[in-house]
Write a protein that binds this DNA or RNA. Sequence first.
DNA 1: AAAAAAG
Length: 625
Amino acid sequence: MPTSWADSVAAEASAAGSGVGSANNGAIGTNSGSNRSAYVPPHLRNRPSSATQPPPVSYAGPVSSANDRVPGQGETFQGVNRWAGPRVGGGISTGGGRGTGGGWNNSRSNWGRPREREVNPFEDDDNSEQVFGDQENTGINFDAYEDIPVETSGDNVPPPVNTFAEIDLGDALNENIRRCKYVKPTPVQRHAIPISLAGRDLMACAQTGSGKTAAFCFPIISGIMRGQHGQRPPRVPRMAFPLALILSPTRELSCQIHDEAKKFSYQTGVRVVVAYGGAPINQQLRDLERGVDILVATPGRLVDLLERARVSLQLIRYLALDEADRMLDMGFEPQIRKIVQQMDMPPPGVRQTMLFSATFPKEIQRLAADFLSNYIFLAVGRVGSSTDLIVQRVEYVHESDKRSHLMDLLHAQRANGVHGKQALTLVFVETKKGADALEHWLCMNSFPATAIHGDRTQQEREQALRSFKTGNTPILVATDVAARGLDIPHVAHVVNFDLPNDIDDYVHRIGRTGRAGKSGLATAFFNENNTSLARALSDLMQESNQEVPAWLARFAARSGHGKSRRGGGRFGGRDFRRDSSFTRGGSDYYGGGGNFSGGYGAAPSYGAPAGYGGAYNPGVTSAWD
DNA sequence: AAAAAAG
């Protein structure tokens, strides 16, 4: 039951492609054997007269989804317009109409299929506004992003842009940017977009909530629309050949990235599919079969799909790791290596690789270098770096007093009544059991709470998050599953009921508030169990101009040499390549002697960027997201 | 030591 032209042709040629998904052919181009013989260059595709091609429009495919439909009068099929538009000045044709995107490459995945109605991802965007009051979702507070320190290193760094207009992203994408109410690029976008449009590999550090998702999505979408390579996918039945892969450490974050990417690619013809564990795999398989250009996934499910030979990475041109430091830490590294190095992914230099996070420990940077080719390091912070917009408090609370203390906070918050708006409170605990227990206790005490952690079913997790976001359950108890990346508007207060052991985790957790230039409050409960964090926490707070309680300073002093945070002290993000020449053998948290041998030592462009001297407090270093 | 990620 082939569902597309591609499938039916694949049936004829199935033998030809049989080796395609096997682990590893390393370089692309190795598969250009028999299944290349039918290659038809873009300008000849979709010509009804072509004997080797299907008619541009086929009604033959079974309607497999409610979204499928036969287009009405006056509408066009993507398959028709896609290759037809003139390429003007290297720009992007939008096919002449709003409804017809300019995707130039991916018609490979939906030739012969009637265009499916694309759900308008902007439709129900403002529904929550009544609940939360106005002016909250109208975009980003750019005033909070002025005068930020930026550091780049690497060869020939493309200059930043100041507006979206000066970048040639294409009409369709520009229209979506407008729909998203993005007026101008955030700092990380200003720098990262030109870098990745130039085809360069990138390691980017930028604060929580500063627009990283768009920073890697825009160039990917734009690049796919240009589709200069126009490579035909091998014809292998039921195997998907995405052009871009975006990996993230949690299912909910993958969902969120997928939702964002859908908005950015609306009516561009670029297809985005998400795949993650805990959800039925069948729907995901169907989505993949219907064609995918950008695959957003969590590592476990992707490995599963690769092993089932339902996805091949051999056409990957863009690889993005969100929360990259997390993806490369002990828990994930083996899976990531498998995906990136042991399957059929093109090697660095052939694909373009982009790593994003707020935090980038030196040892992780060193690991990451394996995945990159002549990359540019970018660190973007701002004077009021995100931890500056977040008021951080630390309170000494004995283990046994935590619950009643939390209750006091919640009562006070309720009393203060945040102007009738729902104020969401996110409470982090250390363990899954602890999350269940605290949720139960809160509910028993008439506080509307729900919880999210890895032992809950995916349905429960998503339900909890939804209920929290809508304000239906304004208190969410969470483990670190919710620490990174999740963009939950209106979180007014993050409570570290249990502090994490790693300062970077703390940075990510408090970054759930104070997003998009808005302010936020973070309260931490500290006691003897957290002494190992004292030094780093104290330093971090000081760097972000927070008031450090005297007792915490004493804890920090007592814990002595403990990890003091950033090696540099300039402003947080540092390219380890710049330190390795003189910090070699050092053992501070972010420093450390590495034997990086990538040949960067002699690069002349590593001088300190001029112009930032007085622009920010030199002590402010942290809070990179 | 805990959490996350496949089933």
